[in-house]
Amino acid sequence: MAEVLVLIDHANGEVKKPAAEMLTIARRLGEPSAVFIGPGAETAKDLLARYGADKIYAVSDPAALEHLVAPQAEVLAQLVAEKQPAAVLIPSNAAGKEIGARLAVKTESGLLTDVVDVQAGPVTTQSVFAGSYSVEAKVSKGTPIICVKPNSAAPEQANGAGSFEELSVSFSDSAKASKITASEPKKASGRPELTEAAIVVSGGRGTGGDFSPVEAFADSLGAAVGASRAAVDAGWYPHSSQVGQTGKQVSPQLYVAAGISGAIQHRAGMQTSKTIVAINKDEEAPIFELVDFGVVGDLFTVLPQATETVKGK
């Protein structure tokens, strides 16, 4: 069976949840080989093997992460040339999609992004036009390069051999043309990451800028907190938490929209959630067209009551 390269998503060596999901998906297509770029590969080794990685290719040269995406694309291009993999799986976030983009040009291969399912073939599933269509696609040229969104598979353990190989890659000058000169880590909220969370609670215009009931309810459920574009534009919540067409597209088990009217811009980011709940004062709010359960009421009384009830369980 051919190898399937999986670019491991990690933050300073700490492997993120989608990595295990993508290794699980890789087993449907061939033998998973984890590609770990940056510090911490030795520490991550056991976890990657536990989710099925037969091989682990590590690149520890700091230059790989000191420049924007291009060096990582060169690592993958070198591996594609050497290993002739059946597919390359990359996390479908901003950086991952750009790595895929550059790799697609280098290897003259088809690129599919924002993929929510991959089956043998590989045939991918994507959700398009604000979640109103489901699209099945395949790559018809070169090595399939597939950017996979978080929550696209339930991680399943499998004993991979986990054989470890340190790669040496020399980066071109043009890959080093765009330098990351400073990096300010985001403040840890202690909550799950928005795109990876099983439950997301979002607030909008209806919060009037006070997100405390939204955050308290999220914490009672162990959820991530999101925000509508209106709330972000008003400066109430950071842009990195924006759910919608120009923010994050989330697809959790449960999505709770509090004080969000449900404009197309927002729906594009949450419409494929499994269960949708909304709280809004306006019974005409379009968000109610989508919900499995809705409460017409003031979020400042409904959410605290729900929070207390949930905590009492």
């Binding site: 109610f288 919900v291 009421g297 409904v302 959410l303 009551q305 207390e308």
Partner: peptide
Amino acid sequence: TIVTDEGDGGTKLA
């Protein structure tokens, strides 16, 4: 299901 909050909206949500 859409319910109107009559003092128990939060409880119903939970």
